[in-house]
Computed example of a mutant assay.
Amino acid sequence: MKNSFLGTFRRSQLRECQLKQLSILKEVDRICRKYNLIYWLDGGTLLGAIRHKGFIPWDDDLDIAMPSDDFEKFKKIVQKELPESLFFQTKETDPSTPHHFAKIRDLNSFFVEYGDDFTKPYQKGIYIDIFCFVDYPPFPKKILSFLSRNISKSISILEKKRSFDELKSVCEVPYFILKYILLYPIWYFCNLFKGGKYQSFQVRDNALGVVHRKEVIYPLVKGFFEEIEFPIPFDSDTYLKDQYKDYMVLPSEEKRQIHAIYIHANLNK
């Protein structure tokens, strides 16, 4: 039976969740300006900035991206710059986290997603995602998209907790092991060639096979998000089409769903 009380409570928490995410973004922006580091709004956050001038009304996450060199510098300074209420979460700072990309978590909140493991003590507060962007090799875009999409999916499937009492679970493991074994050496070989004109997520994070031309990203410009200017890609239209195709078309009503299972935006309340 669907729990309508839980759904109502979750919706009541959404705007406060978004405002907490915005406050985290402001901290990141402050740090990046202080140390002259590059970052930009990415994914649904960039889509929200262009289509809604702020959060997508039903969205409960916030995404930014950083080039790998800047991300490595950011990792070394971020925790000492953040207030005590915020935590920079990676495999190094929070070993039991299942996430392999970085997050900044608000410690005075609780945010539950599908797949969260309550047998492990990793931080589960409201967060923003930080994706590290790397150079892609100088090969046709369709090849890069095919390889990154399928390698990412293979890794995701193989890392997923599963029960082997279903035929699908029994069959998909050897299938995706074989796919990974076949495709990753090709990806490794391609990356021996430097100087590509493309940049995107690290391959394990690139589930959609998104590949951006560098001139679409740089030089960064300013765009409004929740009435505040933040860095966005130079050609946001092409950037968003790379990821979402016809991004200005709103999804159907049934697809406008909050992703979280439970949100408690302020543990003091």
Rank of each mutant, 00 (worst) to 15 (best):
residue 5 F to N: 14
residue 5 F to E: 15
residue 8 T to A: 14
residue 12 S to F: 12
residue 16 E to L: 03
residue 18 Q to L: 02
residue 29 D to E: 13
residue 33 R to V: 06
residue 39 Y to K: 06
residue 39 Y to E: 05
residue 44 G to H: 02
residue 45 T to L: 04
residue 63 D to G: 08
residue 67 P to E: 06
residue 68 S to A: 14
residue 70 D to N: 15
residue 72 E to F: 08
residue 73 K to N: 11
residue 76 K to H: 03
residue 80 K to V: 04
residue 87 F to P: 01
residue 87 F to Y: 08
residue 92 E to P: 10
residue 97 T to A: 04
residue 103 K to I: 11
residue 103 K to L: 06
residue 107 L to P: 07
residue 108 N to S: 12
residue 109 S to R: 02
residue 110 F to I: 06
residue 111 F to R: 04
residue 112 V to E: 11
residue 127 Y to S: 03
residue 130 I to W: 00
residue 140 P to M: 09
residue 143 I to R: 10
residue 144 L to E: 02
residue 145 S to C: 10
residue 146 F to D: 05
residue 147 L to C: 04
residue 150 N to G: 02
residue 156 S to H: 10
residue 157 I to T: 11
residue 157 I to D: 01
residue 160 K to Y: 07
residue 165 D to Q: 12
residue 166 E to D: 14
residue 171 C to V: 12
residue 171 C to E: 15
residue 173 V to S: 01
residue 187 W to Y: 08
residue 189 F to N: 01
residue 199 Q to A: 15
residue 200 S to P: 03
residue 202 Q to P: 08
residue 205 D to G: 05
residue 208 L to Q: 13
residue 209 G to F: 04
residue 214 K to H: 09
residue 216 V to F: 06
residue 220 L to C: 11
residue 220 L to N: 08
residue 229 E to A: 15
residue 230 F to M: 11
residue 241 K to E: 13
residue 243 Q to T: 14
residue 245 K to F: 14
residue 252 S to M: 12
residue 259 H to L: 08
residue 262 Y to R: 13
residue 264 H to I: 12
residue 267 L to C: 13
